[in-house]
Nucleic acid binder design. Sequence first.
DNA 1: TATGAATGAGGCTTCATTCAT
DNA 2: CATGAATGAAGCCTCATTCAT
Lengths: 203, 203, 203, 203
Amino acid sequence: MSTQGRRGNTHQRIQDVALELFSEQGYEKTSLREIAEKLEVTKAALYYHFKTKEDIVISLFQDLTRPIDDLIAWAGEQPRTLETKQEVIRRYSEALRSAEPLFRFMQENQAAVRELSIGERFKERMLTLCDLLKEPDSQLADQVRCVTALFSMHAGMFAMQHVEGDPEEKRKAILEVATELVTAANPPSRRPARPDSAQTASP
Amino acid sequence: MSTQGRRGNTHQRIQDVALELFSEQGYEKTSLREIAEKLEVTKAALYYHFKTKEDIVISLFQDLTRPIDDLIAWAGEQPRTLETKQEVIRRYSEALRSAEPLFRFMQENQAAVRELSIGERFKERMLTLCDLLKEPDSQLADQVRCVTALFSMHAGMFAMQHVEGDPEEKRKAILEVATELVTAANPPSRRPARPDSAQTASP
Amino acid sequence: MSTQGRRGNTHQRIQDVALELFSEQGYEKTSLREIAEKLEVTKAALYYHFKTKEDIVISLFQDLTRPIDDLIAWAGEQPRTLETKQEVIRRYSEALRSAEPLFRFMQENQAAVRELSIGERFKERMLTLCDLLKEPDSQLADQVRCVTALFSMHAGMFAMQHVEGDPEEKRKAILEVATELVTAANPPSRRPARPDSAQTASP
Amino acid sequence: MSTQGRRGNTHQRIQDVALELFSEQGYEKTSLREIAEKLEVTKAALYYHFKTKEDIVISLFQDLTRPIDDLIAWAGEQPRTLETKQEVIRRYSEALRSAEPLFRFMQENQAAVRELSIGERFKERMLTLCDLLKEPDSQLADQVRCVTALFSMHAGMFAMQHVEGDPEEKRKAILEVATELVTAANPPSRRPARPDSAQTASP
DNA sequence: TATGAATGAGGCTTCATTCAT
DNA sequence: CATGAATGAAGCCTCATTCAT
C-alpha cells in the first residue's frame, strides 16, 4: 500500500481511469470531460487533483519510470557481462508486463507524447537501456540485435495479441527470442578467451 | 515558379505538406489551418481537394498500401519457401525506405490511426504479412521470430536514428537481422524425414 | 411549350431539381452543391443560369405567381358576388394542385421565405385573395371563415396526406368544405334585395 | 439587476432568447453566436446548458408538448361525444394562445423542424389530435372539416394578424368557426337506426 | 474536497460566390 | 455553356482551463 496509501482515493481513481482511456482511445482523443464522466465527478474536480491534463500523464509516467530507473540503476552496479544483459532483458520484460497499459499508451501515442515534456525523458530511458545492452564499438548488426531485443518486447505486446495462446506463454516466448538476440549480439569470443577458437576474429 | 509550380499540383502539395506535418507533430496536433497556411491557401481550398481531414490521411495511406499490397500479391503467387520469405522481408525493407515518413507517421500515431477507418485495413495488411512469414502450427517462439522480424524493421527506423552510421548501412544491418530471424523461424528440417519423398519439391 | 421553349433545357432542369430539393429538405438545408450534384453539373454551371441562390427561388416563384395573378386579375373583373367567390376558391384549389411542390415549399419554409424578397410579394398576393373573399365590414367570424377557406386548402395538402383515399377525391372534399365556408361567410341576406326574405338580417 | 437577475436563470434566458429569435428569423437563420451575443455570454456558455442547437429546440418543444399531451390524455378519458370534441377544440385554442411563439415557430419552420427529431413527434401529436376529432369511417368531407378545424387555428394565428381587431376577440372568432366545423363533422345521427334509442337526435 | 458556471481559443466543415479559362 | 480552383465568412461544436462558492 505504499504507493496509494495517501488519503482519499480519488487521485488514484483518476489515474486509473485516465490511463485506461488514454490507452484505449489515445491521449488527444480523450477529453477531461470523458474522464470526469466515467468517474462521476466534475471536470473541476480533476483540477483539484491535477494542475493540467499533462500533469495526469506525468504522474502516470512516474509510476512507470520508477521500475525502469530501478532497473537502470541496478544494471549500473553489475558487471557488464552477458548474464547481466540477459537479466536486464528479463527484468524489462517483467516491467512491461506489470505496466502494460502504460507501455501500450506510450507506444501508440508517441507523437502525442513527444510534445509532452516527458517525451524526452522517456526516450532517454530507452536509449540508456539500449546502451546497457550494446557495446558501442560492436558491429552495426549487433547493435541492431540489441535494439531489436528491446523493442521486440514492445512490438510483441501489440502484435502478438492476434496469436492465440496463453499470455504468459507468449511473454516467455518473446523473452526467449529477445534473450537470443542479445546473446547473439554479445559473442563470448569478443574478449580473448575462447581458447580453442582459432578465431583470429575481431578486436 | 513564384507560387511553386502553379496549377494542378495543389492536390499533391497538400499531401506532401500534410504528411510532413502529420509525421512531425502527429495527426491530432496538426490542424488544417496549419496545413493551409504552410501552403498559402485557405482552409476551404483543402476542402476542394479532400472531403475531410481523414480523407487526406486515407489518400496518403493508399500510396503506401499499394506497394504492400503488391508485395502481398506477389508473395501469394510464390511457393511458400524460406527463400520467398526472405525475399518478402527484403522487399518490405525497401517499401519501408521508400515511404519512410508515412510509416513513421503510422507508427507514432497508432492510437489516432486506429479510429481512422484505415486503421483496420492497415492492421489487416500487417497480419497478412505476418501470416506469409510464419507457419501457423509452428512453435510460439518461431512465431515470435517472424513477428519480430517484421516489426524490428519498423522499430529500427525510429530507434536506430540515434546510432551513428550511414542510413543505408543501417538499413542493411536491420535487414540482415530480420532475415536471420525469419530464417531461424523456418527451419529447413521441419517435416523431418519424408525419406521416400523424392521431394524435388519446391519451385 | 411557351414557357419552356427557350433553348438548352438546363435552366429548366435546375428549376425542377431545386424545387424538388427545396420542398423536400427545406431551402436552407439545400445547398447549391447538392443541386449541382443531382444534375451532374458543377456549381459554377448554376451560376451561369442564375445569379444567386435566391434567384432560383424567385424564378420558381414567378411560375407560381402567374396563375395566382391571373386569378386575382380575373376576379377583379367579375362582380363581387358569392358565385365569383366560389369560383375563386375553385380556381385556387386548382392552382394549388398544379403547383403543389411550390406551395408546399412556401408553406414549410415561411421563415426562410420571409427574408427572401419574394416573401413580401407572396404575402400580398394572399392578402389580396383574402380581400376578394371577405367583406371588410362583415363580422369577425365571417372574416375568419374566408381566411380559413383559403388556408384550409393549404393545410389540407399536408394534413390530409395521412388520410387514405384518392388524392383527387380528397381535393374535392377540401374544396367542398372551403366552398361551404366561403358561402357561410357571405350570407345572401347581406345586400337588401331578397324581397321575400324577412331576414332582419345580421347584426 | 445589472446583468439581469444573475444566476441560475441562464438556462431560462437562453430558452427565451432562442425562442424569440427562432420565431423571428427562423431556426436556420438564427446562429448560436447571435443568441449568445444577445445574452452577453459566450457561445461556449450555451453549450454548458444545452448539448446542441437542436437540444435547445427540443427543450422548447417539451414545454409545448406537455399541454398538448395533457389534452390528449384528458380526451382519452372522456366519452367520445361531440361535447368532448368541442372541448378539445376549446382547450387547444387556449394551448395555442399560451405558447404562441412556439407554435408560430413550428408553423413557419416546418421544413427545418421536420429533420429535427422532434418533427416526427410533433406530427404524431397532431395526428392523434385529429383522430380524436374525426371518426375514421365518416365521409371524406367530414374528415376534412376536422382537420380544418384544427389547422385553421394555426393558420388563424398568422393570417389574422392582418385583420384589425382585439386579439382575444379574434381568437374567439376563430374558435367559433373551428367549433362549427367540428360540430358539422360529427352529426348526432350518424348510426341512424338504433330503433329503440329514443335519440331524438339526428336530422 | 468538490461543483456550477463560464470562457477563449481553436477545431473541422460547409456555404454561396467568383473568375480565369 | 460550362468547369476547375479557390475564397471569405460563418456555422456548430469541443476543449482545457478558471474561479467563486
